[in-house]
Amino acid sequence: MTAEMLDAVPDLLAQRIAALREYKGSLLLTHGPAEAPEGVLLALRRPTGALFRVVAFQVQPGPRRQAVAASLAEQLLAAARREEVFLLRAAAADAALLDADLLPLLGLPPLALPYTETWLGNVSASPRQHVPLYRQTTRFTCGPASLLMSFGVLGQPCSERREEIALWREASSIAGLTGPGGCDPFGLALAAQARGYAPRVLTSTSRAMLLERVDTDEKRELIEFVQTDFRLRTEEARIPIEQRDFTVAELAAPVAAGGVALLLIDQFLTHGRHTPHWIVLHHHQDDWFLVNDPWTEPGRMEGPADAEHLPIRTATLEDMAWFGEPAYRAAVILPIQPG
């Protein structure tokens, strides 16, 4: 979009377009001349997700309004088919940028908190358990936040920061590249077991993990020491550990049975940076999972509509679920019933 067009649209819409247009996955559709666009539709998609969030949909009043809106709606639906996106959402937080009377052209029901949605084509989610999104409050507590969401699925809802930080203190590898460190699967499994659950750990490596996130030998030695102790304690606690090159597809069975899986991924494909990160897989259907991601990107103005019940194809998760050099993967499975 040109500066001329930004000057021609309302200030709030211009600000949102300027903030999001450079992000991979943003889609800006316009109708009419640059100096006086008749309509604008802005959608945002995480590159790894099969979901478009409609951020803005506005059309100037007049006799051509419905035709212009219908054209923009069809362009978005065509883009969804082309990019194999099968879920649309509109967030109540974006209400000021959405002409409510135009949402039905996309098949979207009236806005509701936190968002409204519609499934496209022949895809529809079978009845699913509600997994409330808990957004991590620090850059290093994705693992504890994922555990909190898992506990919510399995009958022990909790959304307090005190518990998030308490879990981190129990499961942390201590050190990171620029500050406190994240959590390995063994620390998370021990924390889950301490709260009455029966976790199972899958890992492809016997080496300490997350060493890529430290920049001194002292930090590296500390992480190796802590994780060695976590693994020993996991074995002593008789928590099952399977060390092999497992596939993400294997997680479908325990998830379909009503359990959840915490999966370690690299954020590069989603947010363009190599960072280890834990997410929650809580529903499986056909060739995709529904995922809760505790991280929402501030610059993309992400919220629950972007990170809660997010459909991601199994093949995409297979690519995401490798981290490090040499690459390794890890998961923590929690069955539906506490142990």
Rank of each mutant, 00 (worst) to 15 (best):
M1N: 02
A3K: 00
P10Y: 03
L12E: 15
A19I: 01
E22D: 14
G25I: 06
A36K: 11
E38I: 12
G39S: 06
V40M: 12
V40K: 09
L44N: 05
R46P: 01
F57T: 11
Q58Y: 07
V59E: 06
Q60F: 05
P61Q: 09
P61Y: 08
P63H: 08
E74Y: 10
L76C: 14
L76H: 12
A80Y: 04
R81G: 15
E84H: 14
F86M: 04
L87W: 01
A93Y: 05
A95Q: 13
P104F: 12
L106A: 14
L108Q: 08
P109S: 13
L113Q: 15
Y115A: 13
T118I: 14
T118A: 15
T118Y: 10
L120H: 07
N122H: 07
N122S: 11
V123E: 09
S126E: 13
P127G: 10
R128V: 09
Q129L: 15
V131D: 12
P132E: 13
L133R: 07
T141I: 06
S146A: 13
L147Y: 07
L154F: 10
G155R: 12
E160C: 15
E164F: 09
I165Q: 15
A166G: 14
E170P: 04
A175S: 02
G176V: 05
G176C: 04
G181W: 05
C183I: 02
C183P: 00
C183L: 01
Q193N: 01
Q193Y: 01
G196C: 10
A198W: 09
S204K: 04
T216C: 00
I223K: 04
I223Y: 02
Q227W: 00
Q227K: 01
Q227H: 01
D229K: 06
P240H: 14
P240K: 12
V248C: 04
E250F: 05
A252V: 02
A252W: 01
V255H: 04
A256G: 10
G258Q: 08
I265E: 04
I265L: 03
D266A: 03
D266H: 03
F268A: 09
L269A: 06
G272F: 10
G272L: 07
W278L: 02
I279Y: 00
D287A: 10
N292W: 00
P294F: 00
W295R: 00
W295L: 00
E297F: 03
G303K: 03
G303P: 07
L310C: 02
T314S: 10
D319F: 05
A321D: 06
F323E: 03
G324K: 07
E325P: 01
Y328P: 12
Y328S: 14
A331R: 07
V332A: 05
Q337N: 15
P338Q: 14
